[in-house]
């Protein structure tokens, strides 16, 4: 289709937003809350003309993509994607992901997106100046990772508790080389830099442990949006499968990770579903999963969510039994106190 120009949608204008919402509803899609940029193509130049196609993005994830049946096969997809890639470059983002239904993945493969993983419900593709192989090779080089067999843990550490420390110590005791991936996505109460620093300091006495940022391919809004959106049902199942598979297929293979440790999850449904998925997926790739019983204090499992609850209720005295010194010290810094105040006045689960 010649001369088609994508129009930017002002998402803050309820009328414009509703129009896109209504259009997407016709495809069983909805405009996700985290979308920050949306474009549409109209059937003609006037603002009144009806929408024939739309696409959005949330940071570097392209989503909410739809074209009406009559206009498929006219190259509209490439116009939309090119426009979004232009926008990303202008924002200094040189790499992007697309979530699509597996049946539509071929559309994006034809536009040079590369398939990372697909299951029955969802396919994840990427495009840009690097890919998952390059990202992992860079990680190997930057953190000086050798070829030996490794054991891995993935933790959000929001904040770092004695439970996390115990889990890492267990792994370090029984294995030669341990990698701790701290979730890099900054959607938790404690910012990534703080979480990373507390873990690094907290395990500095363990010489065979390396702490790494998890990057974009473990529990990020690309691989596992449910972790941050707290979704349930089929989508949750698809996302945990996706994240587990990417970890097994790429991380374990390229970094020679042969074992993964997780804590038993008594509270959180999403984390429990994630553990279940790991249990199923990892053995397929020859990776062993160890589920470790949580460290307890006075018969109650130590968890970061419990720590946040205590802070929220203002029961700060109990914290010294649940948190290592590094975290306790941090809570007394200006930034720490600010986070405590923020938590007291919030109701988010993160």
């Amino acid at each position: 289709m010649y001369g088609v120009i994508p129009n930017w949608v002002n998402l803050k204008d309820p009328k414009e937003r509703d129009e896109v919402e209504a259009f997407l509803q016709g495809f069983d899609l909805s405009l996700d809350q985290d979308v920050d940029y949306t474009i549409v193509i109209r059937d003609g130049v006037s603002q009144e003309a009806s929408i024939i196609a739309t696409c959005s993005k949330a940071r570097n994830v392209l989503k909410c993509f739809a074209i009406i049946e009559e206009h498929r096969g006219e190259g509209i997809t490439s116009i939309l994607i090119s426009a979004l890639i232009d926008k990303l470059f202008s924002q200094g983002i040189f790499h992007s992901f697309i979530f699509s239904k597996p049946a539509s993945a071929h559309v994006f493969l034809a536009l040079n997106f590369k398939l990372i993983h697909s299951n029955e419900e969802v396919a994840l593709l990427e495009n840009g100046v690097y890919d998952i192989y390059k990202a992992l090779e860079d990680m190997k080089e930057n953190y000086n990772l050798g070829g030996g067999e490794k054991t891995a843990l993935v933790m959000n550490c929001n904040p770092f508790t004695l439970g996390h420390a115990y889990l890492i110590e267990e792994a370090a005791k029984n294995n030669e080389e341990v990698l701790v991936f701290v979730v890099e996505e900054d959607r938790s109460l404690f910012p990534f830099e703080t979480r990373y620093e507390l873990v690094s300091k907290g395990v500095s006495h363990l010489k065979n442990v390396k702490v790494l940022p998890s990057g974009e391919y473990i529990i990020s809004s690309a691989t596992f949006p449910s972790y941050f959106l707290r979704e349930k049902g089929a989508r949750l199942k698809a996302y945990v499968e996706l994240d587990s598979s990417i970890f097994a297929q790429y991380f374990c293979k390229i970094l020679n990770i042969t074992q993964r440790y997780v804590g038993h999850e008594p509270y959180c449904q999403v984390t429990r579903a994630y553990n279940e998925a790991l249990k199923k997926v990892l053995p397929i790739y020859g990776v062993k999963l160890h589920v470790i019983a949580r460290k307890r204090f006075k018969d109650v499992s130590i968890s970061a969510s419990r720590v946040r609850d205590l802070i929220k209720q203002g029961e700060l005295d109990d914290l010294k039994n649940l948190l290592p010194d590094v975290t306790l010290e941090f809570l007394n810094t200006p930034l720490g106190r600010e986070i405590v105040e923020k938590l007291k006045s919030s109701c988010s689960s993160h």
Binding site: G75, S78, I81, S82, I85, D86, F89, F94, G128
Partner: peptide, 18 residues
């Protein structure tokens, strides 16, 4: 810098340089 030119449309080429 990293930069790009072009599109993914037919008869075009997308060039990314870094």
């Amino acid at each position: 810098k990293i930069a790009k030119a072009g599109t993914l449309e037919s008869n075009d080429i997308l060039i990314m340089v870094m």
